[in-house]
Design a protein around this nucleic acid. Sequence first.
DNA 1: CTCACGCTTTGGTCGTACCATTCTAGGCGA
DNA 2: TCGCCTAGAATGGTACGACCAAAGCGTGAG
Lengths: 249, 249
Amino acid sequence: MPVQAGRASEEIALQVEAAIVNGRLAPGGRLPSEREMQSQFGTGRGVIREAIKILQQKGLLEVRKGAKGGAYVRQLDVGNVSESLALFLKQHPMEPEKVIEFRESLDRTITQLAIAHAEQAEKDELLKEALRLEAMLLEDEPDLIDASELDRQLNIKLARMARNPLFEWVMHALQMGFSSHDYALYEDRTYRIKAGANWSNTARAIANGEIMRALAYNGHHYVLLRQCIDEKAAPASAPNTGFLQEDNH
Amino acid sequence: MPVQAGRASEEIALQVEAAIVNGRLAPGGRLPSEREMQSQFGTGRGVIREAIKILQQKGLLEVRKGAKGGAYVRQLDVGNVSESLALFLKQHPMEPEKVIEFRESLDRTITQLAIAHAEQAEKDELLKEALRLEAMLLEDEPDLIDASELDRQLNIKLARMARNPLFEWVMHALQMGFSSHDYALYEDRTYRIKAGANWSNTARAIANGEIMRALAYNGHHYVLLRQCIDEKAAPASAPNTGFLQEDNH
DNA sequence: CTCACGCTTTGGTCGTACCATTCTAGGCGA
DNA sequence: TCGCCTAGAATGGTACGACCAAAGCGTGAG
């Protein structure tokens, strides 16, 4: 059990991670207390704490304090992966066109899969939410924060309807990485009205199982998006700022 | 600067992360030594170390010891995202069909973009490598490790030719997450020969700018993949195992 | 029977000391 | 003068010990 390699904390983290991945430590299970592990591994407590911090950051552990506290094994969710990708995207700003290109490709497949795999109830639900978004965007002074949040949820919902976790994951990550960007676009009144109408048209086509029509509306969404961006880019010539501008604490 | 919130280390980690993402700390830059930060933040050294461990795990920092050592800001690379995804996939095993579905969709777009955007030299290079892979897979006792590595590189190369980093990154992440699977498939002699031939056909079509032909071969790849997986899933009992074994050349 | 208090467990933080590694500068020898 | 080599400084890595804060649990008073 005891270790003496270069970085003891990472070694311990690897051992515990292996135990978790191999199922020897099931989700919900609890690791020994730090002081116990300290003596089990024959190391100082700081090392144990650092190992736990590593696994906590990976999303494998959840730490609670107090009696009956300790490190509990957690079930990973897409949030961790999305967060990782989002962080990466923040460090690698890229032209909006590239993001659009990617999302457009993704969206086409998702739409088709959703039509094929999702329950009718889900499709109706999607339509209902889309109509709600459209109504929201038609108001004189819409709450843009709420609207873009709903937009995000619609995208996630649609991705989930594709019944393939990978699409859901990537869409989730993209939403996290570029949320601020989407928000800015809705400030253009013309765009938001057209986009809202287009969302409900898309959702209606999906609900009716009209694949080609859904894809057409889907494509139209990206036409609108590109038009809007081209207009915004025309006056000022700052191509790739915008993602890093948010400076909150 | 000093903090007193619940988890001091996470608070500090957030502050430093914000500084990095906002560009106040450029990649290659160096953070103060632990003992300096200890006094700057008015906290114990353990807290500083844990904060650094968090950012190190996120891939934002690289720590070197000795004189001129310390925490250096790192440029994130896809490796971190891939690692995160791989871990997630380990805890959430999903049907190969879902992965294939996703990759197939991605591959179609990548192929089209690559034909449209890549230089002719790159396309020729791709073809050359594909031919090398095909020759490799035709050997009696091919080195499957090398072959699957080359396969991975081909996929990455093609993704890079699409001139959109997002495709490259996602493809990279997928390759890392499923490397073991790919390797196993090449053990099937029939599959690896057909797949090798198909790779060079695809690359040739791309080099010639024949979009539809390239997409056809691309689709064929996934037909082969699904056949191979289906056979492995349903061993010996299938009535047609016999004639699928014979080679086609 | 209920509620509050205090005890126990356990993570969170601080401080110090010492070790291991790495770079640097200055001295010593050829 | 040039080059190697060693001593020292800077810095992360580890250990130990102490105390604080939160959270659960049990017991005793009302």
